[in-house]
């Protein structure tokens, strides 16, 4: 189990769990963060800036602190 914040740039993964309080959970799910959804990390801004994540047709930017609430399985692991 890894966190979205720990993904390498260009890596593909699947969301396995979201640990968030109600308001954050709603925000995340409104933007397409759901358990079972595939995503990829496009880039990361300098100086520990936000992450640029692609979920299907949506591009989202979010900070490390929020990304650390999202557990992912990298796609290699998931297909085993």
């Amino acid at each position: 189990m890894r966190l979205l914040s720990q993904l390498a740039i260009g890596e593909h993964a699947t969301i396995s769990a979201i640990e968030a309080e109600e308001s954050l959970y709603h925000r995340l799910s409104a933007l397409g963060f759901r358990v079972g959804k595939p995503l990829s990390l496009i880039r990361r801004a300098n100086f520990n800036g936000p992450l640029h994540v692609r979920l299907g047709t949506t591009d989202v930017i979010l900070r490390d602190t929020e990304a650390a609430r999202i557990h992912v399985q990298s796609d290699l692991q998931a297909s085993q």
């Binding site: 954050l24 925000r27 995340l28 933007l31 936000p50 640029h52 949506t58 591009d59 989202v60 930017i61 979010l62 900070r63 602190t65 929020e66």
Partner: peptide, 9 residues
Amino acid sequence: EPFILELPP
């Protein structure tokens, strides 16, 4: 507040 934004094309 969390910082989560959509990046439009």
